[in-house]
Design a protein around this nucleic acid. Structure first.
Lengths: 192, 192
DNA sequence: TAACTCACTTGACCTATGATAAGAAATGAA
DNA sequence: TTCATTTCTTATCATAGGTCAAGTGAGTTA
């Protein structure tokens, strides 16, 4: 399946679009590829794009005052990634966006997306639904971080996204879970 | 300012609507009031409505296996509250929605809102923006919960929402911050 | 006035997880 | 096949915050 069609496939799961709208959407996105470890965004820059990953894996992270990296999101193919805050406000980002593997993405700029909402109102519905779900998801992750132990969060992640364990170094997964690599290592030891 | 106009005022901050659209929106929402401690949703029910608070304060919370309450959201007037997961999926909720003070709300059902999106597409834009912002916000709260100490989270809350300290019991604020009332008490002692 | 309740505080102790530092295993480069 | 780098594990110790249990103080009810 060509890259564009994957995007359309996922949009079509939530809103039904005509082939005319499909064409408009496809032409609004640009295809871009990046090698493993390449950065698509650095702190201080404005996040110009929102990215739909068609191949590979990416992460977003920030570096705190003490120089520690904290991972915010890990996304595989068919997921969206961006620094939404910077993307929507057009203010400087505090985040890095990095390719964890060689990746291919479809990207669209903020202004182009605004224009596309006018051309294809159903796309705005798609994004409304997307953010809705992302919000619900993030509240659940918040809940788990507040009230579940690291072990429970680890088990949930294994259950729901076991694929990332095959593809992403454990340091990153630990950070995503909100724990140190050492703690993750202890948890994994107990399990086996 | 009458209740309805408050809602319109906040919608108008993000999308400009005509007086015709305004009328359609206003007539789609129902006014409802509830006394302090009254429940608008209980676990096992489907969350039928999304609520815009025009007066008072509400909280959403759930009760874990050990019988402990965990507060998810605290919202004052001009905020939205619901169990979005249940609202959108129309499946049973795990949450309580409770009035912390005597409240007045404007509520709309899921199906009525879907219909209203068709009548007033700009409203869908408003909700797209609302969820976008809510999502960004929730990611920040997640970040703080993972990487900041309870003291820092407390200070941030004092800075950003000092009004809730005048209106909401500390037990609830502690839970919202993801700590025990005892810990919050210790933090506040150190501060003074 | 006393008795009760609600909201909060205090103290003693405990535990999950962090910090630091060192080592082992895997990967990759020469 | 050796050396270097990256990734993961292990051990020891430190600490933020949890748990439990008792206490204070303001407001309400009787």
């Amino acid at each position: 399946m060509p890259h564009n069609h994957k995007l359309i496939y996922y949009i079509n799961k939530w809103v039904s679009i005509t082939s005319d709208e499909e064409a408009k959407i496809i032409s609004a996105f640009e295809l871009k590829s990046a090698a493993k470890k390449e950065l698509m965004l650095e702190p201080g820059e404005v996040c110009e794009y929102i990215y739909f990953i068609t191949k590979g894996a990416m992460r977003s992270y920030f570096v705190d005052d003490k120089g520690n990296e904290h991972i915010f999101q890990i996304r595989l193919e068919n997921g969206w990634i961006s620094d939404l805050e910077s993307f929507f406000t057009q203010r400087k980002s505090n985040y890095y966006l990095e390719a964890l593997e060689d990746v291919e993405v479809l990207r669209i700029s903020s202004s182009r997306l605004e224009a596309l909402y006018e051309e294809v109102p159903k796309l705005e519905r798609y994004f409304r639904i997307l953010f809705q779900k992302a919000y619900i998801n993030s509240l659940e992750r918040l809940n788990a971080t507040m009230w579940d132990s690291a072990i429970e969060r680890y088990n949930d992640l294994v259950k729901e996204q076991s694929d990332i364990f095959q593809r992403v170094p454990l340091v990153y997964i630990a950070s995503y879970l909100g724990i140190t690599p050492e703690s993750l290592s202890r948890i994994r030891k107990k399990k086996s």
